[in-house]
């Protein structure tokens, strides 16, 4: 008896937390298969008939399909570039001695403190001058630039763990700096690279503000922008169903990603920040 009471006490708080997380998601899902008229007039009822039409209109009419493809392109290219470029810098900062090392290290550290908001207006004007507004290339470049600081410092921690003797041995074997980096170092810090990629995936896939500033053309909008767009359009029409379907469509990919990489995400997040 005591034991059961104890168990209840242990679980009750967490059960409440879990309900708060799960119920909203279920609510969105139920509404997404309801006809639009029922959503406003009979909000809590179950759908009178299950209707996937909302998904069709969210995917094609509201442009979520376009946003999905754009997000996929932008995110994947950005991640590859971020991880690769950051690893190069982290390797040098961790293993080499040279003249402006402190300066470079400090200026990247500065990037961790600079809020994106500070430079909102000038960044937009700069991109506009470079003809990179409303361009996926522009968005990729900005994402890469703004993710470097964070990724470099995660990776430095991993490079620091690689014993110097390994590099020395490789050099004695006649490896040049590029071979050392590619053949010796990268395989050794692979877990770090994967963690960095996963984290940047979540950050960039969900990114909203930079995209909001830099992309206004409907055909270039990423998923979060298109989603916010549905809310805009919905104000001028009466298609509430598409809003909910759009929400489900934007939740599904990250959820799948989460289920696959759950361990690494959770454990990686803690590892990164404690070491950093």
């Amino acid at each position: 008896m005591m034991k059961i009471l104890n168990q209840i006490r242990q679980h009750i708080f967490l059960v409440i937390v879990s309900i708060l997380v799960i119920i909203p998601v279920i609510w969105v899902f139920v509404n997404s298969v309801k006809p639009s008229s029922e959503i406003l007039l009979a909000p809590l009822s179950f759908p009178s008939k299950i209707d996937f039409g909302n998904y069709v209109s969210a995917w094609s009419d509201a442009g979520l399909g376009v946003g999905f493809v754009n997000s996929l392109i932008v995110t994947s290219i950005s991640i590859i570039l971020i991880v690769f470029l950051s690893a190069m810098v982290a390797f040098v900062l961790s293993k080499k001695q040279f003249r402006f090392k402190k300066t470079i290290q400090l200026s990247f550290l500065l990037g961790l403190m600079l809020p994106t908001f500070l430079a909102m207006a000038p960044l937009f004007l700069l991109m506009n001058k470079l003809d990179l507004v409303n361009s996926l290339v522009g968005l990729v470049l900005v994402y890469v630039a703004y993710s470097l600081s964070f990724t470099i410092f995660i990776l430095i921690a991993f490079f620091n763990q690689v014993p110097d003797s390994l590099e020395e041995a490789a050099v004695i074997d006649g490896c040049g700096p590029f071979r050392v980096f590619w053949n010796v170092m990268l395989p050794l810090v692979k877990p770090g690279l994967i963690s960095a990629a996963i984290f940047n995936f979540v950050g960039i896939w969900n990114e909203y503000i930079l995209a909001l500033i830099l992309i206004s053309d409907d055909s270039m909008k990423t998923l979060p922008l298109q989603l916010a767009n549905i809310m805009m359009i919905q104000q001028y029409h009466t298609d509430w169903g598409a809003l909910y379907a759009g929400l489900v469509l934007s939740i599904i990919p990250v959820t799948i990603f989460f289920l696959i990489f759950q361990r690494r995400l959770i454990e990686g997040s803690t590892a990164g920040s404690i070491k950093g």
Partner: peptide, 10 residues
């Protein structure tokens, strides 16, 4: 290749 594709889009 991807970059070329993307550039092509814009």
């Amino acid at each position: 290749l991807l970059l070329v594709v993307v550039a092509g889009c814009t």
